[in-house]
Computed example of a mutant assay.
Amino acid sequence: MYAVDLHSHSRFFHAWPGRTTRYDPFGLTLNTFAARLRGLDALAVTNHDYSYSAEVGFPTIPGIEVSTADGHVVVVGPDPPTRTTPGELSAAETVDRAHDRGCAAILAHPYRNSNARDSGADFDAVEINGKNPEHIAQTKDLAKRLGLPLVGGSDAHYLVEVGRAYTRLDIDELTPTAVADAIRDGRVAAMTHFGTLDKVIDRAYTKIHTEKDWLETEESDETAGDRR
């Protein structure tokens, strides 16, 4: 049995989508330090639209968070796509590509900026996201309706976020293939760890995303008005 955070980022921000920055190795080192403190056995590194790996003295699982036309999909396993273009693939196409490459495809934060839960894609699991504890009950109901296992991922961009949600995998060896196989087979359990600091961060994060959603709606309305 291994404890793995299946959703983490090696960068604070994604102002340069789809490519590595000089911060990546430093960010990953910080995250693995936090992972050790929280008793995790490994991290999946799942940056937005590009995969990143480095030798940091701590086990990491290859991955990528694909910005599909329907919402975000986390892909983990031995051979995730190296790079994807935001909005180019549907959720279903992303899942098919993940399976073709021996990876597992996870429906990420299904109730935050996403319609992927209604896409009909053949996901392997549904994610309980560390940034959205307020969505846990909904997410559990969704997984039950879809007949899919639950996994946990922190969605960490900062070291204090690592391990707030993670996954226990029933595997004998910690390899990317074993991780992907366990997710597809349902040999997983989603776990959460929310302390006082985590709850404070979550309230701030929820406020930021609420304002972000409002601004995006305003921009969409203005764009629609320009077209008219």
Rank of each mutant, 00 (worst) to 15 (best):
G102F: 13
A125G: 12
N129S: 13
V151W: 02
P110E: 12
L107R: 03
N115Y: 03
N113W: 13
H99E: 13
S114D: 08
S119G: 03
A143F: 00
I136F: 09
R112D: 13
F123T: 09
E134F: 11
A125E: 06
N113S: 13
V126L: 12
D118W: 14
L142P: 00
N132M: 15
S154C: 13
L148N: 04
A137I: 05
I136N: 08
A104N: 02
N113A: 14
I136M: 05
N132I: 14
P149V: 09
A108L: 04
I136K: 05
A105Y: 07
V126D: 05
P110A: 15
L150A: 02
D141N: 13
F123R: 06
T139C: 10
A116E: 01
F123S: 07
A104F: 02
I136T: 15
G152F: 08
V151P: 03
H99Y: 15
A116Y: 01
S154W: 10
R145V: 05
G147A: 08
L142I: 02
G153P: 07
A121Q: 00
N115K: 14
T94Y: 10
H99Q: 10
A105R: 06
A108G: 05
G120A: 12
D100L: 15
A104Y: 00
L150M: 09
A143E: 00
C103W: 00
A125S: 12
N132V: 14
I128S: 10
P149L: 11
T139V: 09
G102W: 12
R101V: 05
K140W: 10
A104M: 03
D141K: 15
R101M: 07
L148R: 09
N129G: 07
P133M: 11
K144A: 14
A137Y: 00
N129C: 14
L146M: 15
A143K: 01
F123A: 11
P149F: 01
I106E: 01
T94W: 00
V151H: 03
S154P: 08
H135K: 11
S119H: 03
H109A: 14
G130D: 02
A116S: 10
D100I: 11
K131F: 07
L107T: 08
D118C: 07
H99T: 11
S119L: 04
H99W: 13
L146V: 06
A108D: 08
D124T: 06
G153A: 14
C103T: 04
T94L: 02
Q138Y: 01
A121T: 00
I136H: 12
D124C: 05
L107D: 04
P133G: 11
E127P: 05
V151N: 03
H99R: 15
L146H: 01
V95S: 01
A143H: 03
A121S: 04
N113T: 12
V151R: 06
N129L: 07
H109P: 00
R117M: 06
N129Q: 06
H109R: 13
A143V: 05
H109S: 10
N113F: 14
T94A: 07
A125T: 06
K131M: 13
V126G: 02
I106V: 15
Y111S: 08
Y111N: 09
